[in-house]
Computed example of a mutant assay.
Amino acid sequence: MRALNRFIQVDWQQGTVQAEAGVTLAEILAISIPQGWFLSVTPGTQFATLGGAIANDVHGKNHHLRGTFGNHVRRLGLLRHNEGVLTCSPTEHPEFYTSTIGGLGLTGIIVWAEIQLIPIRTSQIDSTVVRFGNLGEFFSLSAELDHQHEYSVAWIDCLAKGTQTGRGVFIVGDHARYGSLEVDERAKLSMPLTPPVSLINNLSLQAFNNMYWRVHPAQSTRKRGDYEPFFYPLDRILHWNRIYGRRGFQQYQCVIPDAVAEVVMHELLEAIADSGQGSFLAVLKRCGNIASPGLLSFPLPGTSLALDFPQKADLVRLFARLDAIVRESGGRLYPAKDAHMTGGDFRKAYPAWERLEALRDPSLNSHFWKRVTA
């Protein structure tokens, strides 16, 4: 939908932007930051489109305070087969509003949307960084710091075992109170080619994870930096996915309810470490209890774990083990990143799927939807 890339209307007094669905989050930031506004919620890449962010109801490092992207969609234009463009909001065609947010593109084509931004004084981020020695320390830090800061996230070493299971680096941040309103326009690096085999393997992962953990401070350390490295570290390297070689990689993201999160996360990380298949990008974060308007929104009050695995035949066995742990805990997987979820797991985790199916545009379907609703 990138051809739909025009801005329609902006209001810098109220901080609202109305744009076509193919506009990227980076393009929104490029015009909003100089005016003192920022995305209310942003995922880990600014290259997502506005329509894609809505269709997958993306979330970010501040879910505990602001919920999902869908919580900040004021209204949208939805093109449906034989119905034209419908304006959808909490009061206009509300059934299509709730089913389109997180609706995976199945209710129609999002043509445009209007979103609410948040005010900022500067484009820089004040952050606090500290490494932690195990999963228990992560949950202690999260309980202490999350409610004090706008953003909270952790990187973890998913290959660590024993008393170090779940060790990692905890990061909290806030928009700085003073400084300039500049858009980060530094040149990007690029992975120029796709190697025949993955550069991510057990040896490189163990070396990277150990080095990354040790270079971060053992005591809480404050620093100030630009917004792009804080929110979008991988966006600095174009075509970074090529490091996984020609077979590529699979993503795995789950969320586990609060009541059992620490125990179940420990079990998940033990299973990953035992398999010998790790992820250099392993993100752990707590989700809040702000409900999304979307029918199939992924987050729930609990803890989310996101991982990238080089594509191997052994992943089938590992994912089956992880799925069983998530299933028994009452957790669920993220449809936006899924390539393997069973229909039974999907339908149990997202009971509102039948309401979405009833509202699905008859001219639209997807491989994912066929797989999980069959």
Rank of each mutant, 00 (worst) to 15 (best):
R6K: 12
Q9V: 03
Q13H: 15
Q14Y: 07
A21Y: 11
A26E: 12
I28Y: 00
L29F: 02
A30G: 04
S32K: 01
G36K: 09
W37H: 05
W37R: 03
F38V: 04
F38M: 11
T42L: 13
T45H: 10
T45I: 05
F47P: 00
T49W: 00
L50G: 08
N56G: 03
N62W: 09
H63C: 03
L65A: 15
G67V: 14
G67M: 11
T68Q: 05
T68W: 14
F69H: 07
R74F: 10
G77R: 12
L78Q: 04
H81V: 07
H81R: 15
E83N: 12
E83K: 11
V85C: 09
V85H: 03
C88E: 13
P90R: 05
T91H: 11
P94H: 11
E95R: 11
E95T: 10
T98G: 01
T100P: 06
G102Q: 08
G105C: 03
G105D: 02
G105R: 08
G108K: 11
I110V: 13
I110S: 08
Q116L: 09
Q116E: 13
R121T: 08
S123N: 11
Q124M: 15
D126L: 15
V129K: 07
V130Y: 07
R131Y: 05
F132K: 05
F132A: 06
G133I: 10
N134T: 10
F138C: 07
F139G: 00
S140F: 03
L141D: 01
A143Y: 00
Q148V: 09
V153C: 00
A154L: 06
W155Y: 12
L159K: 09
L159D: 06
T165E: 10
G166L: 01
G166I: 06
V169F: 02
F170L: 00
I171P: 04
I171V: 15
V172N: 09
G173C: 00
R177G: 11
L181V: 00
E182Q: 14
E182D: 13
R186P: 11
A187P: 02
L189D: 02
L193C: 13
L199P: 02
L205V: 11
N210Q: 15
N210V: 14
K223W: 14
R224C: 08
D226I: 00
P229D: 03
F230P: 02
Y232C: 06
Y232V: 06
P233N: 12
I237S: 13
R242M: 04
Y252I: 02
C254H: 02
V255A: 06
I256K: 02
V263T: 13
H266A: 13
L268F: 03
L269I: 04
A271Q: 14
D274E: 14
S275K: 04
F280G: 05
A282N: 02
V283L: 13
S297P: 09
S297M: 06
P301G: 01
L305I: 06
D308W: 04
P310I: 05
P310T: 10
A313Q: 10
L315S: 00
R317G: 04
L318S: 05
F319M: 13
A320C: 11
L322A: 07
I325V: 14
L333I: 04
A336H: 01
A336S: 09
K337V: 04
K337E: 02
A339Y: 13
F346M: 08
D361I: 08
D361M: 12
S363K: 07
N365K: 08
S366Q: 05
F368G: 01
T373G: 07
